[in-house]
Amino acid sequence: MTEVTSFRNNPLIDPHLEIWEWQIPGYLFLGGLVAGLMILNGVWRLFYSDKEGRSITRNGAVAAPVLLSLGMFLLFLDLSYKIHVFRFYTTFNPASPMSWGSWILLLVYPVQILTLALPGGIERFGWRFSFLNPLWDKIKIYAERYNVAVSTSNIVLGIGLGIYTGILLAVNAARPLWNVSLLGPLFLVSGLSAASAWNLLARPNDAEKKLLVRWDIGLLGIELIFLMLIIIELSTGPIGKQAAAGLFLGGNYTASFWVFIVGLGILLPLWLEIREAIGRYVPHWLGPLLVLGGGLALRIVFVYAGQISSMPEITLFR
C-alpha cells in the first residue's frame, strides 16, 4: 500500500490538469479540418486537373480561411494573458511545436488567398466587394502563373498544419497518453477524413463525390488502424502509458472513446460509405456528419483524457 498526500492545491493543476478546455479541442479540430481541405485542394489540382471541381476547389477553399480564423479565435480565447498574444510573433523557438504552428498558420493565409484566385476558385466578387476586383485580377494572374507551386504549397503546409495539431500534444513526455509517436499522423489522417466529409456536404459534383467517398473509406480505415496501434503502444509501454491505456480500456474515458470515436465516428460512417460506394441508398449527409462529429470527439477525448494521465512516482524510498 502506498499513500501519497500532497498539500498542493493549485487551481487548474490539482487534483489533475484542467488547463485546456473546449477551446483547444475545437482549435485542433478546425486546424486539422483546414489542413485536410488544403491537402485535398492541392491533390485535386495537381493530379485530377482534367476533372472539374466544385466542392474541393471552391466551396472547401472558401471555407478554409473562415474555419481557420475561427480556430485561431478559439486559441486566443484559451490564452490566459490575452493582451500578450502578439508574443507568439516576436520570437521563433525551433524546439517548440506551438511556435512552429503559429508561424505555419501565418503562412497559410496568403497561400489560401492565392488558392482562391486559381481557376475554379473565386472568379469575381459581387457588387458589395466589387472594389476588390481590380486587385483580384492581378492576384489571379500571379496565382495562375505559379499554379503548381500554389497547389504544392497547399499540400506541404496542410501536412505541416495537420501533423502539428497532434505533435503539439505528443511532445509532452509528462503526459503519457499524448506522448505517442502516432498522434501526429493520427490527427493528420483524421483531419483529411474530416475534410473529405466537409467537401461531401459542400455540394460536390459527381466526379468529386465518387472520389471523396473512396478516399474517406481509406482514411477512416487508416485512422482505425492508427488508433489501435496507439492502444497497443500504450498498453505495452511503461507503467505510466499502461495507466493511460487504462483510461480507454475500462477507465473514465472508455465509453466516450469506443462509442463516440470508434463506433459513431469511424465504424458506422465507414459502413455507410461502403454501402454508398457499392451503390446502395444511404442519406448522403449522414456519413459525413458522423465523420465530422467523430473528428471533434477524437480531439475532445484526447485533450481531456491526456490531462488526467501523468507520470507516476515509481520509486518512493529507493
Binding site: 506551438m98 511532445v171 509532452n172 503526459r175
Partner: peptide, 13 residues
C-alpha cells in the same frame, strides 16, 4: 513575454 498558452504547464512532469 508570457502569453498564458499553458504549454509549459502541460510539459512539466
Amino acid at each position: 513575454k508570457c502569453s498564458g498558452c499553458k504549454a509549459c504547464i502541460a510539459a512539466c512532469p
